[in-house]
Nucleic acid binder design. Structure first.
Lengths: 213, 213
DNA sequence: TTGTGTGAATCCCTTCACAGCG
DNA sequence: CGCTGTGAAGGGATTCACACAA
């Protein structure tokens, strides 16, 4: 399971999509799948699928395709979702609380084990079984709960304070919902989720179409 | 305001980021900004910023930089957020309801004017001032409310039914929260938001780092 | 025969470097 | 002199095409 070349970001994202398709196929009882089928369901090309998969070994059977559950297992190991991850949510404002209520992270092995905020009116309250902790105790909570990833859902103004403390306590991954670009030290990985930006990309395209008429 | 070349998807995304930076600067009372400043705050390079901006005209002043509010206005027109958009939410499940409660779309000019679902127990209920409509009345609601964009937050199994009806009623933009790849007819644009996928990309990177040790 | 794995070719995006304007 | 605008160069990622294994 050693990975030969550098795997690009876009490749990882596609592999994540393949995994979802494979899981649906596993439920359906399908045993093998071809690169063309996978590309059909994921909106890419068969060649792309093969390139993506070949970057971490070759276990497709020529003339046959890939073994569905075999491939799914392998992707899970690569992505690191063959185990669960311990996640803390920082910020229980509008987005933060919505994310907790949603619950979609746990389904995929991301277990929210702590919730933190600075607002005294929120500290001590319960959110889906967890008590909101004081951000003052951040470092203790992280250590006690063995937190590995942070979901950052604080206002833009508060971002830099929190990021400094995340770095100090040794956490290396942040899922950022604040609409700003995080400055993080070397070794910390950030992924941004920006729903409004996607909407803006959408209205841009529609705008262009209208101008062409 | 005519756009010369094709503008790539990634370019649009960056331009959206520039706009946010510019808006913060406008509040600060800054009058001009250089490509280097913009790149600093957005995590790109100055050359990239200039390339991005040059793709829709040249209004930077050489030796000086760009006029903050002038540039912001121009970007708003390009992206189409110089006006508001009428949006319908389809699906008031876990994600859907969280999105309505969040309210972050309205702040940026995306006005949710209708909410729809198929679940009889939800139809008729109020969500932040709006009554949940029956999906049976989808076409009527879209026409009455002048819906231009759809936020799709239904389970994977329900996706294809809804997509067909979206196409028929003439809507050309979908923001998709379902973790699946939408098959849409020519002329309809889809943007996916997949928070779990971002988390998976995060744990992939962390996993790789660990393996290297 | 079918469908993978992969070098080669192609395309697109980013970076460089500098001419040109304020 | 400072910073934009942009052709040219460079680097990645996608696509092509085919040898090869089941």
């Amino acid at each position: 399971m050693s990975i030969s070349n550098k795997i690009s970001d876009s490749s990882v994202r596609r592999i994540s999509i393949y995994l979802r398709i494979l899981e649906r196929m596993e439920k359906n009882g399908d045993e093998t799948v071809s690169s063309e089928e996978l590309s059909d369901h994921s909106g890419t090309t068969a060649a792309q699928v093969r390139k993506d998969l070949s970057s971490f070994g070759s276990f497709g059977k020529r003339g046959l395709g890939y073994g569905v559950s075999e491939l799914a297992l392998c992707i899970r190991k690569i992505i690191g979702v063959d185990r669960s991850w311990r996640v803390a949510l920082v910020g229980v404002g509008r987005i933060g609380s919505a994310l907790v209520d949603w619950g979609g992270f746990l389904d995929r092995g991301y277990d929210i084990v702590a919730i933190l905020d600075v607002d005294p009116s929120k500290i001590g309250q319960k959110w889906s079984g967890l008590t909101v902790c004081d951000m003052d105790d951040f470092e203790d909570v992280v250590r006690e709960q063995g937190v590995e990833l942070i979901i950052l859902a604080v206002p833009v103004e508060a971002v830099s304070d929190v990021v400094d403390r995340i770095a100090d306590v040794g956490i290396r991954g942040i899922l950022n919902f604040a609409p700003t670009t995080l400055r993080v030290p070397e070794g910390i990985t950030v992924k941004d989720v920006n729903m409004v930006m996607e909407l803006e990309a959408l209205s841009f395209t529609l705008n262009q179409q209208k101008l062409k008429e």
